[in-house]
Design a protein around this nucleic acid. Sequence first.
DNA 1: TTGTAAGCGTTATCAC
DNA 2: GTGATAACGCTTACAA
Lengths: 338, 338
Amino acid sequence: MPRSPRAVDVAKVAGVSQATVSRTFNEPDKVQPHIRQRVLAAAESLGWLPHGAGSALARRRSLIAGALIPTLANGIFATHVAALQEVFSDAGINLIVSVSNHDPAQAMRSTQAMLARGVEAITVVGEDFGDPIFDLMAARRVPYVITHGFNANSRHPTIGIDNFKTFQEITNYLLSLGHTTVGMIAPPQANNARVEARVGGVRDALAAAGLGMRPKHFIEGPWSIQFGRDSLAAILAAGSPTPTAIICGNDQIAFGVLTEARARGISIPNDLSIIGFDDDPIAQHTTPPLTSVKVDRASMGQEAALYLLARLRGEMPDLPPPMQAKLIVRGSTAPAKR
Amino acid sequence: MPRSPRAVDVAKVAGVSQATVSRTFNEPDKVQPHIRQRVLAAAESLGWLPHGAGSALARRRSLIAGALIPTLANGIFATHVAALQEVFSDAGINLIVSVSNHDPAQAMRSTQAMLARGVEAITVVGEDFGDPIFDLMAARRVPYVITHGFNANSRHPTIGIDNFKTFQEITNYLLSLGHTTVGMIAPPQANNARVEARVGGVRDALAAAGLGMRPKHFIEGPWSIQFGRDSLAAILAAGSPTPTAIICGNDQIAFGVLTEARARGISIPNDLSIIGFDDDPIAQHTTPPLTSVKVDRASMGQEAALYLLARLRGEMPDLPPPMQAKLIVRGSTAPAKR
DNA sequence: TTGTAAGCGTTATCAC
DNA sequence: GTGATAACGCTTACAA
């Protein structure tokens, strides 16, 4: 049973020392062209690839980064991971993906597992799990960055939109249309400071206009289409006054509200304005098309990866400024009926 | 600048040898309880975590697996990765994700990068890139499994549905409804044997009924909603005869066709039957709801990971039988108008 | 420019 | 049950 070839085998075949094999792959210009050729040919013929553990040990670099996300079941995190993966991959770094399922204990286990695998840097979605995780990374001098929300007051580096401000703006848009009875259907706030900030933004903007949101018009739950339908049903069942506009935590929920509204003969946007979040491709194709808020998730992931790559080069780069969300007005919002 | 603690530091603090530290974490029952406690306490106080590269080198196990997928932008692959990640994670194995973008050269680079990182096992979506990749893994004795399509004739282990047979059945369902003019809108077949098999299944079933598919009724392209809309427009623009049923490569395309049909006043399913694929959550909520085909992607990923875990234990497990896709008839299909 | 040799941090074999 | 010690495969001063 032949075992995998090692650098010394390549060296033997090429008639050079092991050091030259290493140089051929890591510092090619330090070895003469013709001898480089010989080494490459030998490696090729043996099917040799550097051994990750060996080289990680000697080099003190694993060439592996980690991403901690809540779940891959949500499309926005898949997009996020795709962006990270691409940038890291271009830099010769592989990406380990691990999930928390919004559970602090699992987040901690995942982080430890990644650190035990020797990841050089980590991206974390949100700062929901408190200090232990960040202390752990800091103690091991592993650079990290928090994504999906810019927070100027955080003691950690953060990248993303200002969730509070963005939802303030969304709300102000509805206020400018004359809506005074506004509802919201949001993902759970537990272990999710981003959602908390968004809800806060809505409440703050309403309060600034001397308004409030009735408890029965605020519903928390999963981000599914079905949940959107059920939530609208629940809001209507709660009786009058009924909101004239509903802010949805994402476009799936908004699509559900739209669907339920149509099933009930409620005219959108005449009887009810609906606003989504994330500008999913589907938003353009619903009837009517959904007003939504576009966040450039891909650049957010890229920024995060580039920030960490700079840190790995030993730099202390400035954080990029907060990203700007963009309100995309389509047909699902209109002035309040008077 | 204090460097990360090593096992020997823990040993010193606990007043034991380094070997005992290792045993405490890897073979706990081989060390006396009270001394185990001491070691754990010492490790805790120093914040020590085993060093991945060191232990990978000594153990000849990286505890890392790899997944090669076309892209994370497509939700079905995100679901797939989520399932893999979960099973591997429960087994203490981290997952590196890398993508091919349907490009053989990039697939090869990604595979090499994963192997260089020492992955112990790899899942590959489809067998589109030919032998080089599989030869590479085989030469290094890295177990692998191909997902997203069961192929009894493959010389590699495969897991998934039989794509050919599944689309034969879909087509036979439409034939049983009396449809004789059937169109298809599919993702590109290039570098995608799964799509090729699906198209083959449709053509085969039609041929068995003495029918064929007109070239103008077969359209290949991306899997977006917009592409579905454009494709229906193109098929209609090609003039009579017009198909009475269209098979779509996935539910996004089907949703696009549905949307375009409504925009043109074409009644679904009376004038046109539409059938999707993947049973996306949206399929239940369109008007009318979409007939689609459900494939249990999560179990497919789990099966793949479990198969590889068994291989890593040194077993030679049987492959699971082909998975069964399930036709879910909803409101978008009906008997052909006569 | 190339070779020699000393790590890198852990695990596993072998004594005790 | 515990402790020395020799791998594990590579990189990198340092020497030639």
